[in-house]
Amino acid sequence: MTLTSHSTLRDRLLTYLAGVGGSSTRAQALDALDVLYAGQWTTEDISPQNTRQFETKWRNRVSFERQRLVERGVLQARSDGVWALADGFDPSRIDLPRLAARNAEIRRREDMWVAAKAAGAPDDILPRALEPLHLRAGGRGIYVDVATTKSAIAPAGVAVSFLDLGQAYANERNVHGVIYRLPRTTREGRDQAEITATVRAYELAMPVFVILPGARPASRSVRRAVVESVDIARGSVLITFLDDDPLPPEPGNDENDEFELVIDDVETRWQRRKARPNQARFAFAVLQRYGARCAVCDLDAEPVIEAAHIRAKALQGSDDARNGIPLCSNHHRMYDAGWYAFEPLTTEVVFRAQQNKGQSRVIRSNLSHLPLQPSRKALEDAWERWSATS
């Protein structure tokens, strides 16, 4: 059994403080939470810390979450042992039914993940095991499980899993996650319901699962993930895996803090994953900013449109979308090979003298047609480097 998530601990603390008028001593708050959630603390939660046997892990972790809320300006920064909502914070902003429903569904999915790992996840689980685990049912690409996930906060349900076997849709997948294509068929009502359920998973920061080909032809791989971004106009979502590599433990505040060798909390893993380089995230952001059309030849076949770094990744170029530009695979390779560059002031496409512009099939003379422009600083940096090698 895992520890109760960081987000759930914060929700429980805020719910309690809002219910008692906004403030309480630390001891009163912890004792109240102990009683209010007596049947919901996990075995790991109520186990003693290694360094402070008199205190359970969840009490120590709630204290850390209180500090996080102070840093976010939700609670007051006090040192007198009183935990209090920040001045001006409206307790009515805390939607208690929504928090309860969200936390219950997150807990259900975490239990599903524990059961899936016992059945062979992430790399080798039999397809017939997916339905009993509530990970999958039917042949649709997006599984919602409406009967279970439909609620007042999600009238169309919340997406549970995404099937990506490399057959029906041209999804882009790497070790970090997948750019998943939303359904576009003649069954608009059902397709729209699945899209709405996917958006709700994003809005609620709900863990989801991606079903992939397994280690053997007859098996499946299951990856726990989150919907990180949604682009309805392009019909794409960015899904980031949570378990593709181990994460280091969070630092404690002092030597007496509980040391957690493994952090298995969805929110923490997601936030720390987002801070890491991710080519799928960069590509998604570039196409979302500029559109899925080559900037120099107007080809709009998204499967061959790539996100090119203006300042190269090999030169520590950032993954900010403003340091990127959409190019088809051919023109991306020409750009990386130094055939052409963009003059910073006019964004004119300039070719080297020895290259045959006529054979390049470039039909755009500059970048003014793009809905947004790339960073001038990035263009100037690339132009300077390109000019120095002419």
Rank of each mutant, 00 (worst) to 15 (best):
S7W: 11
D11P: 00
L14N: 12
Y37T: 08
A38Q: 11
G39P: 04
Q40A: 15
Q40H: 14
S47Q: 15
N50M: 07
T56E: 13
Q67M: 11
P97L: 12
E105W: 08
R108Q: 09
A129W: 01
P132G: 00
A137Q: 10
Y143H: 07
V146W: 12
T149H: 07
K150I: 08
I153N: 11
G157T: 08
L163F: 00
L165C: 03
V175A: 10
T185M: 06
G189F: 12
T198M: 03
R200S: 12
A201N: 14
E203N: 09
I211N: 03
A215S: 13
R224S: 14
D231K: 04
I232A: 13
G235M: 04
I239P: 01
P248T: 05
P248G: 07
G252V: 11
N253T: 09
E255Q: 13
E267L: 15
A275K: 08
A283G: 07
L287R: 15
D300L: 03
V304P: 05
I305M: 06
A307C: 05
R311T: 10
L327K: 03
H331N: 00
A341S: 14
L345Q: 11
V350W: 02
V350F: 03
R352P: 00
A353R: 09
Q355S: 05
Q359G: 12
Q373K: 06
P374M: 00
S387E: 10
S387P: 00
